[in-house]
Each structure stands twice: as C-alpha cells, then as structure tokens.
C-alpha cells in the first residue's frame, strides 16, 4: 500500500488540495499534479538550482522537499512572477539582456534573483555572482545573467520611485 497523505497548499495565490504519496517531491507535485511545468528539474539532488521555488517566503529547492512537507504552505513558482500578462521587470531584463539561452536554468535563476533583489535592491556584480552561485547555467557563462539582474535592479528602483 502506498503511503498517501492529504495536503493543502497555496500556489501563486491559488488554493489546491491533493492526496499525495509521501515520496513525491514537491517539484514533481508542482509539475505533474498541478501542471506548473515552469519549475524545472535538473539534477534532482540539490546541486543545480533549476527547481528553486519560494516556500513560505524563502527560496528552497523543490527537489529537496517532499510535497507532503509543504502541507499548509504558501508557494510561489516562476508562473507567479508575471502579473496580468505583464512580465515582471526581472523577466523583461532577462529577455532584453539575453540572460538565457536554452532556458532550463531560468526559472530557478529568476526565483533566486527575485528573492535576492528584495534583500539587496542595489547589489554589486560580486554580490550577484555570489547570490546565484547555487544556480548552475551551462550556456551563458553567467555574464548576461549577471547583467540582467543588474538591469532588473535598476528597473525595479525606477518602478518603486
């Protein structure tokens, strides 16, 4: 008999109820059960950062949390960044600065950068590089990602003025 548990979560502001097996990873729950396939699963052991989501206000790796552990939690995924079909300034900056190539790492990069810019709205290049050290990108060499985050910081500063 599979070990099943009823859970309730709020994802990007919407409530969900589900019954999940205890071994189901939060990342697989988001993707396969809720259809939120923006969250990417790369390494499945907490190294690549592609599956980063925000759980109760802090980034976590959704491959290192079981769905059952998220019972009662507020979750934000990359699908929650845009508002009213308007890209978040971070998304615009990634697009304009070509902060992505294949796009696989992008959801994790965006969620980590979203959190980081809230803590540090005016970061140096060095601070950005350290902030995203837990997110691997195999295409860009990081330079355009760093520039995109700097650009997003500037856009967000203007927007909040």
């Amino acid at each position: 008999m599979a070990d099943m548990h009823a859970i309730r979560v709020t994802v990007n502001g919407l409530p969900y109820e589900a019954t999940v097996e205890s071994r189901l990873l939060l990342a697989d729950f988001l993707r396969d059960h809720l259809g939120l396939v923006g969250t990417h699963l790369g390494c499945e052991h907490g190294v690549c950062g592609a599956c980063t989501v925000i759980l109760n206000g802090r980034t976590v790796r959704s491959c290192l949390v079981f769905a059952v552990q998220a019972d009662g939690a507020q979750i934000m995924t990359v699908e929650g960044l845009a508002r009213d079909s308007q890209f978040h300034p971070l998304q615009e900056a990634f697009r304009d600065k070509q902060g992505l190539q294949c796009g696989f790492c992008t959801p994790g990069m965006l969620m980590r950068a979203y959190e980081f810019l809230q803590e540090n709205p005016n970061p140096t290049e060095e601070e950005i590089r350290e902030a995203i050290a837990g997110n691997l990108c195999r295409c860009t060499g990081y330079q355009f990602i760093v520039e995109a985050i700097q650009d997003a910081a500037a856009r967000m500063a203007v927007a909040s003025r």
Partner: peptide, 11 residues
C-alpha cells in the same frame, strides 16, 4: 532518480 517508497510521520 525518484525516491523509493517509505512511510512518513510528521510528529
């Protein structure tokens, strides 16, 4: 890979 089945308790 995916985890093998286990029984989960959350005391």
């Amino acid at each position: 890979m995916k985890p093998a089945a286990f029984t989960y308790f959350a005391p």
